[in-house]
Design a protein around this nucleic acid. Structure first.
Lengths: 206, 206
DNA sequence: GTCTATATTTGGATAGAC
DNA sequence: GTCTATCCAAATATAGAC
């Protein structure tokens, strides 16, 4: 991530992602970030204005893509008349799995997301809600259509739990050593299947 | 938590627990902690030596109790010949549920635990491993006895995931507003049941 | 044990030369 | 756009009086 053929901005984002994953938002200093990115300390404020905005941009870079894929998969599932709860859950969960498996830092980003859940940071939650609330609304609507007896707020609440469980599982799996070669991907695939079954059962509960 | 009829040490621990839950270990300063505890800034270093040690003591205060209850429940389950996987899981999970429901800050502590998972802090992990590794060993042995075909390392790995899922669920549930009175406890009870089924299925997977 | 005062370090942010 | 140098605030930690 700190090779020279990426732009300064990209190198900062990559280094920040890694360090936020490891030390947290408060724990990783801009000095650590700029040193790892091999750029000057002042570059962060020049390109991003502030540390808080840098944090937001770390999210934006990945979430734009992730949520676009989710909407894409949701549209596919919604177009089919025979799609069920599991298909909707898959549309939400599979893109996150793919991201966690990519080789350009996606695994680190998933750990950053896990931290965001733990943070309960109001500014961060507002940013996520402002920018990606519409994705949750789309999924909420799709689930609500298939679960007409479930209270709307209860549904939001359960989707939040599912997002949390997914993030945690992906972040934790990131620590596992892939001893026997293919295992890493296989394990995550299985985790996703378990999650989908678990989440579907949870959603169907009265 | 910051009333005068607790000792300085206890007030610091309570305030630290609350603030670590809200802002994280790096994010909560000793100045915030001592102000909330209504004690002098220097008191932390006098009573605990350092911030890192204060963090450790926040864990010790709750985990000693939590793990004692877990061992107690495990012994009860192990004594019965007809106990199954679900009983062992219950011995592990129920004491955490009880803690999350207590009224002296247990809910905040569960959020602190969730942060510890996200931290991946080596010093903290070593502290937890040194002081509570024997509890995981006891559970590992009990599960291994009932799952003789499962690889030992695989089992450790899965128990870790279960601990993570439990912690996350409890921490997240902590945010929910109990609108209709009894709901809070009922919801957590249900979450625990889901978790146990989920975990048991995961453990039985090949 | 508790306080005030302070040493020391570190962090975020910016000014101004290039 | 990038660098050096620096400002200022905040943090951990300690010394020493009470």
């Amino acid at each position: 991530m700190n090779t020279q053929h990426f732009s300064t901005k990209e190198r900062i984002l990559g280094a920040a992602e890694q360090l936020f994953a490891t030390h947290g938002f408060a724990g990783a200093s801009l000095r650590q970030v700029t040193a790892a990115a091999n750029v000057n300390l002042a570059a962060v404020n020049y390109h991003f204005g502030s540390k808080e905005n840098l944090i937001n941009e770390v999210f934006r870079r990945r979430l734009d893509d992730l949520n676009a894929h989710r909407i894409e998969e949701l549209d596919k599932a919604a177009a089919r008349t025979d799609s069920d709860l599991e298909d909707l859950l898959s549309a939400f969960i599979r893109p996150a799995l793919d991201l966690s498996l990519d080789r350009t830092g996606g695994g680190a980003f998933i750990r950053v997301l896990a931290r965001a859940f733990a943070e309960h940071n109001d500014a961060l939650r507002k940013f996520l809600s402002d920018n990606y609330g519409h994705v949750m609304k789309r999924f909420h609507a799709a689930f609500a259509q298939r679960l007409p007896n479930l209270d709307k707020e209860e549904l939001y609440w359960r989707l939040d739990i599912i997002a949390g469980a997914l993030t945690y599982a992906m972040a934790d799996f990131g620590v596992i050593k892939r001893k026997t070669g293919v295992t890493e991907q296989t394990h995550r695939e299985r985790a996703v299947e378990h999650l989908i079954r678990f989440a579907a059962a949870g959603l169907r509960a009265p």
